[in-house]
Write a protein that binds this DNA or RNA. Sequence first.
DNA 1: TGCGATTTAATCGCGCACGATATATTTAAG
DNA 2: CTTAAATATATCGTGCGCGATTAAATCGCA
Lengths: 152, 152
Amino acid sequence: MTKAGNNSIDHLGIEDLLCFSLYSANHAMNRVYKPLLDKFGLTYPQYLALLVLWQEDNQTVGQMGERLFLESNTLTPLLKRLETNGYVSRKRDPEDERQVRISLTKSGKSLKKETGSISVCIFEAASMDETAITRLKNQISSLRDNLAQSAT
Amino acid sequence: MTKAGNNSIDHLGIEDLLCFSLYSANHAMNRVYKPLLDKFGLTYPQYLALLVLWQEDNQTVGQMGERLFLESNTLTPLLKRLETNGYVSRKRDPEDERQVRISLTKSGKSLKKETGSISVCIFEAASMDETAITRLKNQISSLRDNLAQSAT
DNA sequence: TGCGATTTAATCGCGCACGATATATTTAAG
DNA sequence: CTTAAATATATCGTGCGCGATTAAATCGCA
């Protein structure tokens, strides 16, 4: 029995669940990012999409979706908002008109440097040393891969 | 330099970010839960809310919010849906009419046993041994607490 | 060549998360 | 006792995330 003696194996409190730690930590992360991204008129998922484009420009919606684990029903509206805000352009690929290529505008590219300090803020907010962060990241990523595997 | 040699310290790929591991793992967890919860007409956040009530019945909206790290703007509509589905009742506390007490209905209570097998499915999907899960959960929870601390 | 199957995005509806705001109740100060 | 401040919940608008569906382009194969 744990602490108060009222948590048997099948009566786990929410604070004892891995899923809830993930859920709440992800929201906490979002709350740290929000004020930092507000300055640029970006949401957290929009920022992630830009990170993907800063790695490799001119990707298709599908390629971005693979990297972000998202599909067009989520990405299309998000990318349209980034387009409206002038950070990306969306063009049908002339080679294959089914695909839409997303490319960074000048303003989208310059955002990479302007947002550079954000990662430092997150690192400080995490209050963990770099090797611990890397280890934790790897464990969470492999948990994700296990979960995704099982959802096949 | 890492693998392809194009990831310097300030050009981290999205897969190298702790925040993205959290983001994507949380979504992966959601995707495992969804088919299991669909059987009961529950969403994942609704299930978390019920877990909190199964631990302690008859809580106020505020108390539930503290445990879930959510506020009334999120919880009120969610709890109304649980009420519509017959799992909880919502009543103003006669001692303090500002507060609303959420209590489990008979059907909400019986759901606890009916959903009991879900945690086993999640455990299997995670494909990690129990001590590793516990350690990971504790690390993620303390990361969450650090982040929440800094967002003060 | 023609035509069904596959692939790629887009669209729609619903529920969550949250900032901002509103409403109602209780508390506290004078 | 009255009224301002504090507290608790609810409401509203926006942007995700996703299941289900639709539309258009391409592919495969007879």
